[in-house]
Structure formats: structure tokens, C-alpha cells
């Protein structure tokens, strides 16, 4: 305890805080870039998975297999897989790229199920009305189904991304300079583990908490019909 108190002035220096801020920025960056790209690709995956017709059966199988497999593998294993797989082809790939691809790979599998649930929540009759007017599958999805599915998709997708901020701690295992990695480094420099990781823990909380609250706020806004209407009015102006 004395050691901790004695270290506090030396630990909370401008330089160390700068390092932590940089690391927090990295955590936020890999999570958001990975999740946003993953979210986009998940849409493509879900769309392909719903391709009708006999000839598309192998495609549908691949899409389902991807989701089912990656949802059942620990994230740490995905990280190592991506690391070694990418290094086998591109020797000088940056750790940032690898971390983002790993997050992406994982995020696709999880958000694809969220998106599929959202699309399936739109009544089939809406699709039939569109098809009867000769709207194509793509037009029906983008103009009729998706706009109605957003309120169902957005809240859990944000909740997933926010909870994923914590899981990115695992990419410290391959040496990405994010929060947890920086913590280990400071710890190795002789600072007390309790002090260092206590601070790191607070950093994670400081990032996650506001985003969680924002997600909850969105959820209540989207859940009420009045919210839906005000969202429309925003779009109209």
C-alpha cells in the first residue's frame, strides 16, 4: 500500500497519461473500425444468405457455416488464426491491420445474426406487396425492409460494439499498443500492478459507460412510435 502511495506522483505524469490516452485511442479505433466494417460486411453476408433458388444452396451453406463457426470460437483463437493466416501471405502486415481484421471477422458473425433477426421482424406481407409491384429483391430489401428493420437492428448492434470494447483487450496478446498492452508495459516498468490496472480499468469504464448509455437512449427512442415519427421528421427536413 505504501508502495502504491509512493508511486502515485511518479505514475500520474503527463507522459504516462499521454501514453494511456494514446492507448485508449487505439482501443477505440480498432473497435470502431473493426465493428463498422464488420457490420457492413455482415449485411452482405445476410443478403447472400437469403439468396433464393437451388443454385444458391452452396452459397447459403457457406454463409450459415461462417456464422455458426465463428460464433463458437473464442475471440483469442480468432486473433491468432488471423495473425498467422495473414502473416503467411503478407509478411509485413501491421498489427493494427491484423487486429482490425480479427475484430471484423468476429463482428461479422455476431452482427449478421442481429441483422437477420431485424430483417425477419418485418412482416412478410410488406415484401409480398413490393414483389407484386415488380420491385427487385435488392430494391425490396433496401427501400422497404431495411428502413423498417433499423429500430430492431441498431440497439443490439450498438450494445455488441460497446461490449466488444472490452474484448479487444485480447489483441494485446499479439502486441497491439492498446490499453491492456500499455498496462502490461507500465507494470513491467516497475509500477504497481494494482495502480496500473486500476487506472486501465477506469479507462475502459470511461469509454464504455457513455456509449452504453447512448445505446440505451437510442433504444428507448426507437422503441416508441413517437420516436419513429420524430426520426422521420428529421429525415424529411
Amino acid at each position: 500500500m505504501e508502495r502504491i502511495l509512493e508511486q502515485i506522483p511518479r505514475f500520474f505524469t503527463f507522459r504516462n497519461m499521454e501514453l494511456l490516452l494514446e492507448a485508449a485511442g487505439m482501443t477505440l479505433a480498432i473497435t470502431s473500425v473493426g465493428c463498422i466494417i464488420g457490420f457492413g460486411l455482415a449485411f452482405v453476408l445476410v443478403y447472400l444468405r437469403q439468396t433464393p433458388g437451388k443454385w444458391a444452396a452452396p452459397l447459403r451453406f457457406l454463409c450459415i457455416a461462417y456464422v455458426e463457426i465463428f460464433r463458437r470460437i473464442p475471440f483469442l483463437v480468432v486473433i491468432y488464426l488471423v495473425l498467422f493466416f495473414i502473416q503467411a501471405f503478407i509478411a509485413d502486415a501491421s498489427l493494427f491491420t491484423i487486429a482490425v481484421i480479427a475484430i471484423c471477422t468476429y463482428a461479422i458473425a455476431y452482427t449478421a445474426e442481429i441483422i437477420r433477426g431485424g430483417l425477419e421482424s418485418v412482416p412478410r406481407e410488406q415484401v409480398e406487396a413490393a414483389r407484386a409491384m415488380n420491385l427487385s429483391r435488392f430494391q425490396t430489401t433496401t427501400q422497404i425492409v431495411l428502413p423498417q428493420a433499423w429500430p430492431v437492428i441498431i440497439p443490439p448492434a450498438i450494445a455488441f460494439a460497446v461490449s466488444f470494447i472490452k474484448d479487444t483487450a485480447l489483441v494485446s496478446q499479439i502486441g497491439v499498443f492498446e490499453l491492456t498492452f500499455r498496462g502490461k508495459e507500465l507494470n513491467n516498468q516497475g509500477y504497481s500492478g494494482i495502480l496500473v490496472f486500476g487506472t486501465i480499468a477506469m479507462c475502459y469504464f470511461a469509454i464504455s459507460y457513455p456509449l452504453t448509455r447512448y445505446g440505451q437512449h437510442l433504444e428507448t427512442r426507437l422503441a416508441t412510435s413517437r420516436g419513429r415519427r420524430s426520426a422521420r421528421k428529421l429525415r424529411r427536413t
Binding site: 406481407e125 410488406q126 407484386a132 415488380n134 427501400q143 428502413p147
Partner: peptide
Amino acid sequence: MAVVFQQYNLFQNMNVMDNVTLAPRKI
């Protein structure tokens, strides 16, 4: 041909005008 359904099936995300003009414009 065009069909009118028992449950109307208007596009919930569009106002009346857009519901009526969507297919004539886009299709």
C-alpha cells in the same frame, strides 16, 4: 396486373404519396 391485399400492406416506412408513387417512379 395489380393487387390490393386484405391487410392493405402499405409500406410502413413511407408516407401516402411515396407509397403511391414508388413503383411508377422506380419500376
